[in-house]
Design a binder for these strands. Structure first.
Lengths: 344, 344
DNA sequence: TTGTATGCGTTATCAA
DNA sequence: TTGATAACGCATACAA
């Protein structure tokens, strides 16, 4: 209020409250030993002066900033956006704060992002896209920075890896197409080459072949609506037109469905059965009513943050063990039956 | 590499390179005076030791962290997500980093977010949702923290306010409906009560009345797809069913259109003309082909970051003027003609 | 161009 | 419970 210099420090508050600056520090540290009386006097002085703990200084001395880096490409994509949404929410509830770093999917832009995380002494980094260089992750580890990989299908020492089992979804999809009486299956993939997308394709092809069904694969471009349109064009103009398509992503499936309907005048699910993956909001929109597999996004986020807190408590505890081990969490993607498959 | 303690500091690098620690500091400060030779020796030593500048310490002494807070609710929404995407990208290109803070739209959760920004001595906060308490923004100002308001329709001293002119879009929409021969207009709004959404409605109603056209208004729930469905139900069951609806948002428009088509068997644009706002990706999807007004999101983000950089340069310069003034940028939302209005 | 000395705001250790 | 003091890692004013 009455102070117009930028910095009002614990010192100023201490003087006003008639205590030492360490008392002020303790007053703002949860669980520190301060008498209720002095604490109140300090808080009053702090409010009057407009004092706010400097997390930069606190982080410096504690060697831990409370920052968690979210490393992600294509944030505007529905699935990514919802993952970011849950992560930031749970991080905040855990008293941490999210730092968002955009990458272009290239592995060295991910490495650069991780360097930023080191610069800010982030408590952890959560990687949603790409894979960083090993030398960088080593440095993160040395700096005590945790790493969480979501849908990365890889494991780093001391890290947590969360991903989905591709097999169950593939089997479920094939059975559904079988029940619908489909004869010629196809998988519509992008060229992104992400491990999880590759596995999704491989698992589906394998399941289809085991069921003795014909299966075509087409790959194109990025994992987007537009690619879905192109993929529809390529698959639906084949001599052997598929009557059931598993799209690597809901976004692709939406593009595929729109093109199939509006360009090829096909009816879904009568002429063509379609299944997607992710369960983005648009999949439930009545124009699509897309049968899909739901990634438990909220659960991912909750588990990531819980694991982080757990690790931190263990660190504060009496177990300074050298944990070269890594943790892995594997989930099933739950099928969401809607109208894009006959007899669903 | 050979160092296994967490912290490798400028001191360590200095010793290895055989220079003083200030030399190391200068080597990592752009535009500082270091000879190429020593600089190289320092960089080599730094790489070998795995040294990374501690931005916490740097921010502490410079009283500027390089952090910019993005304060936003409902990040997973297409329009918000794309705004966040561009902001983070441009911030990174400007050498800054985005801190993402989720709010629940309530004004005091926005205030809490702003407090976080103060804690981390953020260079600036960009507010995309809600309005914080004045006493908080005052404190931000005192801490030298810039504030940027996007679509907030308010002005704070020393801040930048970016928003859209609601009038032009309203006039264009009414004219389009007029050309299409529509007789009964309607505006489908949410109950969010955001200033920009309110203005959008008021401007449309005014423009319609000026054109001598009947206009109904319906408001419901959040600004979402689901609300669009409800709004369709309410408007399309009225005795005087509207034949042209301006939806406050594309998301609302998608829900409205789906409900109109699939529940009421109406054809768009033959039976019903529809216009949205935002130009989210889904508006261009062929199931919707929605005529809409494009918010220049990328431009918003670019301008916000440019303004920030400009202010910082001015600060470094010789003009320590007390700028109680605020800046305002007003844009037009460009109409994107698609298939949801007859004769568009 | 380089080195020395000082301070940034905080927490942690130790005595009282 | 409280206060004094020493780090934390860095940038910079100043002197060389």
């Amino acid at each position: 209020m009455q102070n117009d210099k930028a910095g009002v420090s614990a010192q100023d508050v201490a003087e006003r409250a008639g205590v030492s600056r360490s008392a002020v520090s303790r007053a703002f540290t949860p669980g520190a030993s301060v008498s209720a009386a002095t604490r109140e006097r300090i808080m009053k002085a702090a409010a009057e002066l407009g004092y706010h703990v400097n997390h930069l200084a606190r982080g410096l001395v504690r060697n831990r900033s409370g920052i968690v880096c979210l490393i992600v490409s294509e944030i505007a994509t529905p699935y990514r956006a919802s993952l970011v949404r849950w992560l930031t929410q749970f991080l905040q509830e855990a008293g941490k704060v999210a730092m968002l770093i955009n990458t272009d999917r290239s592995d060295n832009s991910v490495s650069a992002a991780l360097l930023q995380a080191i610069n800010f002494r982030a408590d952890a980094s959560i990687i949603l896209s790409g894979m960083p260089d090993r030398t960088i992750t080593r440095q993160c580890y040395q700096h005590g920075q945790r790493i969480i990989l979501i849908n990365r299908d890889e494991a780093l020492p001391g890290s947590l890896s969360i991903h989905l089992d591709a097999q169950a979804a593939a089997t479920t999809a094939v059975r559904a197409f079988q029940r619908a009486g489909c004869r010629h299956l196809a998988f519509a993939n992008s060229l992104a080459g992400t491990p999880s997308l590759i596995k999704r394709e491989a698992a589906f092809v394998q399941a289809a072949e085991q069921a003795g069904l014909m299966v075509s694969v087409e790959r194109f471009g990025t994992t987007s609506y537009e690619s879905g349109q192109i993929l529809a064009h390529r698959l639906l103009t084949r001599a052997q037109r598929p009557d059931a398509v598993f799209c690597v992503t809901d976004l692709v499936a939406c593009g595929f469905m729109d093109e199939a309907r509006h360009r090829f005048q096909l009816r879904v699910p009568d002429d063509l059965c379609l299944i997607g993956y992710d369960n983005i909001a648009q999949a439930s929109w009545s124009s699509y009513s897309l049968t899909t597999f739901a990634q438990p996004v909220e659960q991912f986020a909750r588990d990531a943050v819980n694991w982080l807190q757990q690790k931190e408590q263990a660190e504060n505890g009496l177990t300074p063990q050298h944990e070269q081990q890594h943790d892995t969490l594997v989930y099933q993607a739950d099928v969401v039956w809607r109208g894009s498959v006959r007899g669903g």
